[in-house]
């Protein structure tokens, strides 16, 4: 899904990451091949060559609650542009992800700053995502091996659960990821990040399935860090268009400054 969900790192967990033929692994070969096959289908469902979305973000932490509205464009896997629409104080602030680099435009000081490696692990826009999450998600398919770890009925629903194990040389801090999707429609329900001790580190739940970008998709994405269960970041898709015409100039430093 080189789609709208992409630029929010984690959320895209579902599609793109799992795609690609590289996804081989675990039990028997036949099983692994089937996982790859299904994940490709999941990915195809969500794939878009480009996207445009309007998203509302709510962040709740121990210290603040923050509501933002933003507009986001993406093209391919590597290019993403996010621009804040509200609140007024931050209106016009924009983030451009191009390859491994992240640039931020700050309208108040009229400066564009390229994030250094030291800032990569800092919070993105005060949310529970790091800048690194934005970069890493597009590498997901290279970084993980996937297999189906559960298939059948759970809580009255037919589900598929994938387990993603980071490859030995992948620059990933997690121990593993699990992704649960509805069998048949492949609509994602939940993604869980585990640390190296296989303790839950963060949980992403998908909900409010409704027509978006011409298909049924979950419009709400809810992230909870395991060490702070009272905090969350929630993304709500207000609109989504896929496979639209976007010029490369859209993802340049000069367009970053345009309001």
């Amino acid at each position: 899904m080189r789609s709208a969900l992409h630029r929010f790192g984690v959320l895209c967990a579902l599609g793109s990451c799992l795609c690609g033929g590289a996804a081989v692994a675990q039990p028997e070969d036949g099983q692994a091949e089937r996982a790859t096959q299904i994940l490709r289908e999941v990915d195809d469902l969500w794939r878009g060559s480009s996207s445009h979305a309007r998203v509302a973000m709510q962040v709740k932490t121990e210290h603040y609650t923050r509501n933002m509205k933003m507009e986001a464009w993406s093209k391919g896997k590597e290019e993403t542009l996010v621009r804040i629409v509200a609140p007024l104080k931050e209106k016009g602030t924009a983030t451009l992800k191009s390859g491994n680099n992240i640039f931020t435009y700050l309208p108040r000081t009229d400066r564009t700053i390229r994030l250094t490696s030291g800032m990569m692990l800092g919070s993105w826009m005060g949310s529970h995502f790091t800048n690194d999450d934005l970069v890493k998600e597009s590498r997901r398919e290279e970084d993980y091996d996937a297999y189906i770890s559960f298939e059948g009925e759970r809580d009255g629903r037919q589900l598929l659960e994938f387990t993603l194990l980071p490859k030995a040389d992948a620059a990933v801090v997690w121990g593993k990821l699990t992704l649960t999707v509805l069998a048949g429609s492949y609509i994602p329900l939940e993604e869980i990040y585990y640390d190296e001790d296989m303790q839950v580190a963060r949980t992403i739940t998908f909900s409010d399935v409704k027509p978006l970008g011409g298909r049924e998709r979950p419009a709400v994405l809810h992230v909870v860090p395991a060490d702070k269960p009272d905090e969350y970041t929630e993304l709500v898709y207000e609109s989504l268009q896929l496979d639209i015409q976007l010029s490369d100039a859209m993802f340049s430093l000069s367009s970053l400054r345009r309001r």
Partner: peptide
């Protein structure tokens, strides 16, 4: 035996990370 991910800038100034 534990994992450590390091993130830095490469020869061209691009951000890279490795395990």
């Amino acid at each position: 035996g534990r994992k450590l991910v390091y993130t830095t800038s490469d020869a061209n100034g691009d951000i890279v990370s490795e395990i």
